[in-house]
Simulated scan of single mutants.
Amino acid sequence: MANITIYTKAFCPYCTRAKRLLDDKGAAYDEIDITMGGPKRQEMLGRANGRTTVPQIFIGDAHVGGSDDLAALERDGRLDALLGA
């Protein structure tokens, strides 16, 4: 499976939804909590081309976007190919 990184914040329902979808797929991911900001938030902003909302999801080198984007990939039948499943 591809390397997955997801930037999240505490109490974020969209983050929970995205993680649940990835969990349902059996995909392991690295979660980076940016609730308190700091250098990891700046890292996310750079990787996500300035997008400030969470979650921001990366699969391999591809910036997927947020929870709705991840769900759209699943709905369109394209998520499994990205995950390498």
Rank of each mutant, 00 (worst) to 15 (best):
T53Y: 01
G50A: 06
T16G: 05
I34G: 00
R41L: 15
M36L: 13
C12Q: 04
I34W: 00
T16M: 10
N3R: 12
F11N: 15
I32F: 03
G46A: 09
A48V: 02
L22C: 08
F11S: 14
R47P: 12
K19F: 01
F11L: 12
Y14E: 06
P13S: 06
N3F: 13
D30R: 14
P55M: 03
D33M: 13
D24F: 13
F11D: 13
N3A: 11
P55I: 00
R20K: 14
M44R: 02
P55C: 05
G37R: 08
R47C: 11
A27W: 02
I4L: 06
Y14V: 05
T5N: 07
A27K: 04
Q42I: 14
M36T: 10
L21M: 09
Y7S: 08
P55E: 01
F11I: 10
T52D: 09
L45Y: 03
Y7M: 12
Q42R: 13
E43P: 05
G38N: 07
E31C: 11
G37C: 06
R47H: 11
K25G: 05
L21A: 05
E31A: 13
D24S: 14
R17Q: 10
A10N: 15
Y14C: 05
P55T: 03
T8M: 04
K40I: 12
T8F: 02
P13V: 00
V54A: 11
T35Y: 07
K9G: 11
D23L: 12
K25R: 12
P39G: 05
G50R: 08
A28Y: 10
I6C: 01
R41I: 11
P13C: 03
M36Y: 05
T35N: 07
P39V: 15
T35S: 15
D30H: 12
T5D: 07
Q42T: 13
A28D: 15
K9P: 02
N49Y: 10
V54M: 10
P55F: 02
R47L: 15
D24H: 12
M36W: 03
L21S: 06
G50F: 01
V54K: 06
Y29S: 11
P39H: 11
N3Y: 12
I4R: 04
I32C: 09
M36I: 09
Q42V: 14
L21C: 07
T53V: 03
R41A: 12
T8H: 05
P39N: 10
I34H: 00
T52W: 00
T35H: 04
I6E: 01
I34M: 01
M44W: 00
T52E: 13
R20M: 12
P13L: 03
L22V: 03
P13M: 03
I34L: 04
